[in-house]
Amino acid sequence: MENLIEELKKEIIETLNLEDINPSDIKEDEPLFGEGLGLDSIDALELIVLMEKNYGIKLKDASEGKAVFGSIKIMADYIEKNRTK
């Protein structure tokens, strides 16, 4: 799980072009949207593509995404349970 969290942090930084942010700056329990990293709806689309491309997880509706992207820890937990690759 720890390895997956670290891997996810790096992928998010790269995919979302988060200049000036290091993996250590992203707190595991901090919300990804609104506060915390301050991500927006376009970032949510990027994360949905990331989940499908890297882990084979297809999110079917937006409300599901809202819960899954609650924090890095929640996201990693969801990937661990649902990944197909």
């Binding site: 376009i42 593509v49 499908e52």
Partner: peptide
């Protein structure tokens, strides 16, 4: 290189 399935929304927009 990656097909049409996983295109980055930001590049598209």
């Amino acid at each position: 290189y990656e097909g049409e399935e996983f295109l980055k929304p930001t590049y598209f927009m």
